[in-house]
Structures are given as C-alpha cells and as structure tokens.
Design a protein around this nucleic acid. Sequence first.
DNA 1: CTACTTGCAAAAGGTTTGCAACCGG
DNA 2: CCGGTTGCAAACCTTTTGCAAGTAG
Lengths: 137, 137
Amino acid sequence: MQQKKEIINKLRSSNLRPTKQRILIAKKLFDRKETFHFTAETLNKEINRKGQNKISLATIYNTVEAFKRAGHIREILTNNCKSYYDTNIKSHHHFYDPDSKKLTDIDYQEVIMKKIPNPPKGKKIKDLEVVISLQKK
Amino acid sequence: MQQKKEIINKLRSSNLRPTKQRILIAKKLFDRKETFHFTAETLNKEINRKGQNKISLATIYNTVEAFKRAGHIREILTNNCKSYYDTNIKSHHHFYDPDSKKLTDIDYQEVIMKKIPNPPKGKKIKDLEVVISLQKK
DNA sequence: CTACTTGCAAAAGGTTTGCAACCGG
DNA sequence: CCGGTTGCAAACCTTTTGCAAGTAG
C-alpha cells in the first residue's frame, strides 16, 4: 500500500519516527479528499470511537503539535478556548458562523488584498489570514 | 464627574444595572485614550492589584461577557486557549507576533480588500477580520 | 542498546456554575 | 421589597507535564 509509504516518508522527512500512533493519526488526517477541520478533542473521539484503536489523549496532543511544527497542518484562529487545526496548509481563509461554530474554507484566490500595511521593523509577514464572521440575514 | 455619568448611561442603555463593579470595570476599560487589549486574567490582575479593589473573577467574566454582548468590546481571534478582548470596537485588524504573543492594532484603512467572496445563502457578513502573523526577519 | 515515544494519571490553566447573600431601583 | 448581581468555591474542560514502560533504528 503506497499510501502508507508516503506517510512514512512524510514523517521521516520531518524527523518524526514513524510509530504506529503517528501513522494512524496521519492517515486519519491526510488520507482524504476534503480538507479537515478538527480540534484535539474531535480527533481523539474520531480515532478512539468504537474502541477500535486506542491512542491516549496526550499522544494526540503531542502528535498534533509535532505535525503543526513540521508544517503538515496549520492552526486556525478562533475565539474560544479550543485549538482548531486544518489539514489544508495552503494559505486560505475562513467563514466563521458563530451560530453553528462551524468554519468553512474560503479559497485563497477568492480574497484579494489591495493594500496591506508594512510589518513592524525586524519582522516580516509570515501569514495573512482573513476570517469573515457571518450572521443570519 | 461626567465620565461617570457617561458610563452609567452606557450601562443603562444596554440594560445593565450600573453596579459598583461594573462601573469600576467600565472605567478601567473605557476611560483611556489608547485601545486596550486584554484577557479576563489580565483584567483581573489589573483591577485587583494592590488589593485596592476587589472584584471576584466570576464577576469579571460575567461583566466582560455582558459588555461583549452589548457591543462595547469585541472579542479577538487568537490561537491559544485564552479569550482576548479589545476595547476598540471599530472594525480593524491585527498583527500577531507569535514570539511575544502580542497583538498590535492595524488601522482599518491600512487594509483594503479588492475582492471578497459572497457569503453562503441565508447569511450575511457580520465582520471581517484580518490577522497578519509575523516572524523574525 | 539508546534515544525517542507512548500512556497514564495528576496537575495546571482558563472558564463556568450553583447558590446564598447582597443591593439597585 | 423584588429581581438582577455578586462572590465564593467547586466543577469543568482543555491542555500540559512527569515518569515509568515500550519500541524504532
């Protein structure tokens, strides 16, 4: 199965040992068509449901953090006490619906900036994220 | 002192009884020139330092939440497990420096959008927030 | 073998809640 | 007085940590 090999390479190239747990998590995250928005908790539920696979919460946090550092996933800005992640690492933007607390991707070419400010001295722009909050019409 | 009267009016107009605590918090937040970025915790420290005034944490949370609902402050999007608030309720944007975890205001006319997507059916845009993440040059 | 990982449980924040006491109108 | 508000402590939820046991290379 070549999917697995790819995942192992991905891990290796980030200096992450391809352990059972990491491979399993990586498959959950990356072996899918659509991008995937998740929190540590939803990922934990998803993986441990039906009691099939068991990965401890701490490992999930570790792994997600490691994937984030390696640039395989990105963290999304939100306004509540949860860390949201996104398997879509291309620069892109989000609709945020406060009613359902759901995020929806906005393709990055859907947003074009005409003017942005210069960053402060000694800093450069790492990322630009637009969040469009919605409300009922 | 007319500042106080204004604050009381502000509270009343939002259906918030002008209690000692709310007035004190409102003064801390609004009786200043520059906009103020804070979390529940920093606000708590600020108010209760030197043991002068004592407002319980729960009341701070309540009041901040009430002010937010009333539209006197706005919540800022971040990526950690804290709720940030801003006394600047005009639409505006932020630099976020992950190193110092500090936010800096970007005046809203410093950012001009050339193109933004249409909101999903039945929804309208409530707010548009740009966060520019920084890194060392 | 050795260093990196995992799992567990406990701890550490941050935020919310239940309820009696309090107080503004 | 009445109903909204406060304060306290306990509860809760998410995230982090310490450490012994496990495992990839």
